Simulated assay, not measured.
Amino acid sequence: MATGYEPLNIPKPVARDVWVIDGPAIRFFGMPFSTRATVIRLEDGGLWVHSPTWLDDGLADAVAALGPVRHLVAPNWIHYAYVADWQARFPQAESWAAPGVAERAASRGVAVRFGHALGQEPPPDWAGEIDQMIVRGSSVHREAVFFHRASRTLILTDLIENFEPAKLSLWFRLLTRLAGNQDPNGRMPRDMKATFRDRGALRADVARMIGWGPERVILAHGRWYTRNGTEELRRAFGWVLTG
Score class of each variant (00 low, 15 high):
residue 91 P to A: 04
residue 131 D to N: 07
residue 139 S to M: 13
residue 157 T to R: 07
residue 15 A to H: 06
residue 214 P to W: 11
residue 168 L to V: 04
residue 166 A to Q: 08
residue 204 A to R: 13
residue 33 F to K: 12
residue 26 I to V: 15
residue 39 V to F: 08
residue 161 E to G: 02
residue 48 W to N: 04
residue 151 S to E: 13
residue 32 P to A: 06
residue 184 P to W: 02
residue 222 G to K: 13
residue 32 P to Q: 10
residue 232 E to N: 03
residue 86 W to K: 04
residue 23 G to I: 02
residue 107 S to E: 12
residue 46 G to W: 00
residue 197 R to S: 13
residue 32 P to G: 03
residue 162 N to H: 14
residue 40 I to C: 02
residue 68 P to T: 13
residue 215 E to R: 01
residue 115 G to S: 10
residue 73 V to S: 02
residue 171 W to L: 14
residue 192 M to E: 15
residue 126 W to S: 08
residue 190 R to P: 00
residue 191 D to E: 05
residue 95 S to M: 14
residue 116 H to V: 06
residue 213 G to Q: 03
residue 82 Y to E: 14
residue 76 N to Y: 09
residue 132 Q to G: 03
residue 2 A to N: 12
residue 212 W to V: 06
residue 233 L to D: 03
residue 215 E to T: 00
residue 127 A to Q: 09
residue 111 A to D: 12
residue 152 R to N: 07
residue 205 D to C: 07
residue 193 K to H: 01
residue 46 G to P: 02
residue 112 V to Y: 01
residue 193 K to D: 12
residue 195 T to I: 08
residue 110 V to D: 12
residue 210 I to M: 15
residue 192 M to L: 14
residue 33 F to M: 14
residue 239 W to N: 04
residue 126 W to K: 04
residue 183 D to E: 14
residue 198 D to Y: 08
residue 218 I to W: 06
residue 171 W to D: 15
residue 93 A to V: 06
residue 2 A to L: 09
residue 9 N to P: 01
residue 147 F to D: 03
residue 143 E to D: 13
residue 233 L to H: 05
residue 48 W to C: 09
residue 105 A to C: 12
residue 210 I to C: 08
residue 208 R to T: 14
residue 238 G to I: 06
residue 38 T to A: 14
residue 200 G to T: 12
residue 27 R to D: 14
residue 181 N to G: 07
residue 36 R to Y: 03
residue 223 R to D: 13
residue 241 L to V: 08
residue 48 W to K: 08
residue 51 S to D: 07
residue 168 L to Q: 14
residue 42 L to C: 06
residue 200 G to Q: 12
residue 176 T to H: 10
residue 176 T to G: 14
residue 78 I to L: 08
residue 108 R to Q: 02
residue 11 P to C: 11
residue 39 V to E: 06
residue 10 I to H: 07
residue 104 R to T: 13
residue 241 L to G: 05
residue 206 V to K: 00
residue 166 A to D: 00
residue 97 A to T: 06
residue 14 V to G: 02
residue 52 P to W: 11
residue 13 P to L: 07
residue 236 A to I: 06
residue 26 I to W: 01
residue 221 H to R: 01
